[in-house]
Design a protein around this nucleic acid. Structure first.
Length: 464
RNA sequence: GCUCCCUUCGUCUAGCGGUCUAGGACAUAGCCCUCUCAAGGCUAAGAUCGCGGGUUCGAACCCCGCAGGGAGCGCCA
């Protein structure tokens, strides 16, 4: 039987880091096994679901290159199917109508907590004589769960986890407005979609025994379960807005590569020996659910940046440039000369760990007027520095072919004549040209900028 | 409170009874390279394997307690 897995986000927020990792593991598993990866939108929370969030989730999926084979399937379009299944359980006596009000239930919950009991439904309506539903009295439908015995979850990642059925209560499968609830729809959907492996976050493990009971009541064979450990923020608390960027699209906006994000996310809770850097193909090849760890991991942006830099190193200069352009444009820079642009960005490529960083440090090439960093200016654009620049203006003007090599010759000659150190020549140039004391090799910078720009910037620095 | 789960350097992790005086990676520090900064190379520091008991000739790995952390306990998903 071919494997069928699904990712089932609810469109009540953007695709966040944790969701993306879950999606990725499903995706990798499906590809590795030659199975199907299905996308399902769990949009039954009408209050909070929006089309915008759904679009954003799909965008995130596409950005991370997790192509789905089927779907998206919308739960809202399957209402009739759920209702039919609820009726089936009702007819079989495996579910019953509950007339308790939400307020009543909430009061009982509070009381139970206060008294140190587990706040579960007391079964008040469980054995009520069935009333005539046509009276239109508001009621929810509850699943009649077994009160004794043990339900064992055979989990691929964590082994066997057992629950006493008496700890589980009669969960509501349909609200009083007739709409089905999560634990019920997941089961019906996974059954109908013939899901073979349910791979999801381990915040769902406590729901799993209930779902197993539902499978049994509905007379369906169980899928395999795999619960993935959570991803935490630096404070070891569940990742949330407080930790900054949680949504994957924000990482796209920060100039990370999809392949790097995949790589980093895959290594959270999973490892393949000592290997750190993986291509997508390598991930698919090496991925194994049984190797997934059990303990939660902390999301570390620094390591993500490093992984990203490693993936950037593999790109061609053209590709690096093309991916940097949007980030230059964000800074109001329009690159007219592509050849020059490629040279400029290439000269900086090892200095940026994301495309956003790369764009930032490359801007000086494209601005007509650069700003001097105050500290750098004080240190290097002093009388001595300006004198040096003046001499250079004179010497450099004489160069016809303004090349790396020829510029270097001028510097060497000047050093020979004056006995000055290279540092004392290079730094004033750097500040004059880039505004800071950090840049690629100074000959290279000059050659890329071109003679006119260099001389203009020198003159402006001397006058500053 | 109750139920379930987790626990190896600051962080991600390797380890699946002897090869562990615990390996790699990020971050940190230093050195090399060098016109600055990166990249790259080398080195250092950093984990009494949460704690306490067992089992065993032998335990990070198996068992039992304890502690800490997390998740769930919704007419949310």
């Amino acid at each position: 039987m071919t494997c069928r897995v699904r990712f089932a986000p609810s469109p009540t927020g953007n695709l966040h880091i944790g969701g993306a990792r879950t999606a990725l593991f499903n995706y990798l598993f499906a590809r590795k096994k030659g199975g199907k990866f299905i996308l399902r939108i769990e949009d039954t929370d009408i209050e909070r679901s929006t089309k915008e969030f759904e679009k954003s989730i799909l965008e995130g999926m596409r950005w991370l290159e997790m192509e789905w084979d089927e779907g998206p399937i919308y739960q809202m379009q399957r209402m009739d199917r759920y209702k039919a299944k609820v009726q089936e359980l009702l007819d079989a006596g495996k579910a019953y109508r509950c007339y308790c009000t939400a307020q009543e239930l909430e009061a009982k919950r509070q009381l139970a907590m206060k008294e140190g009991r587990k706040p579960k439904y007391d079964g008040k309506c469980r054995d009520l004589e069935p009333r005539n539903p046509s009276t239109q009295e508001r009621c929810s439908i509850r699943f009649k769960a077994p009160t004794e015995g043990t339900t064992v979850v055979h989990d691929i990642c964590r082994g066997d986890v057992s629950f006493e059925n008496k700890e589980l209560d009669d969960l509501i499968i349909a609200r009083s407005d007739g709409t089905p609830t999560y634990n019920f729809t997941v089961v019906v959907d996974d059954m109908d979609m013939q899901i073979t492996h349910v791979i999801r976050g381990d915040d769902h493990i406590n729901n799993t025994p209930r779902q197993i009971l539902l499978y049994e009541a509905l007379g369906f064979p169980l899928p395999q379960f795999a619960h993935l450990p959570m991803i935490f923020g630096p404070d070891k608390k569940k990742l949330s807005k407080r930790h900054g960027a949680v949504s994957v699209i924000e990482y796209q906006e920060q100039g990370f590569l999809p392949s790097a994000m995949q790589n980093y996310l895959a290594r959270l809770g999973w490892a393949h020996g000592d290997q750190e850097i993986f291509t997508k193909e390598e991930l698919i090849q090496a991925f194994d659910l049984e190797q997934v760890g059990k303990s939660p991991s902390v999301f570390d942006i620094e390591k993500l940046k490093w992984v990203n830099s490693q993936h950037m190193l593999k790109l061609s200069n053209d590709e690096i440039f093309d991916r940097t352009v949007p980030f230059l444009e964000k800074r109001g820079i329009k690159v007219n000369d592509r050849t020059m642009g490629i040279k400029a960005v290439t000269s900086e490529r090892e200095r940026g760990r994301t495309f956003d960083e790369l764009a930032e440090i490359s801007t000086f090439y494209f601005r007509d007027v650069i700003e001097f960093d105050p500290k750098s200016k004080d240190k290097w654009l002093n009388d001595e520095g300006k004198k040096t620049l003046s001499v250079l203006v004179e010497r450099l003007s004489g160069i016809e072919d303004f090349s790396d090599h020829n510029i270097g010759e001028v510097f060497k000659k000047l050093i020979e004549e004056t006995g000055k150190k290279m540092l004392d020549l290079a730094q004033p140039c750097r500040v004059a040209l880039t505004g800071t004391t950090v840049s690629p090799g100074i000959y290279e910078v000059m050659a890329i900028l071109g003679k006119d720009a260099v001389l203009n910037r020198f003159k402006r620095a001397i006058a500053a």
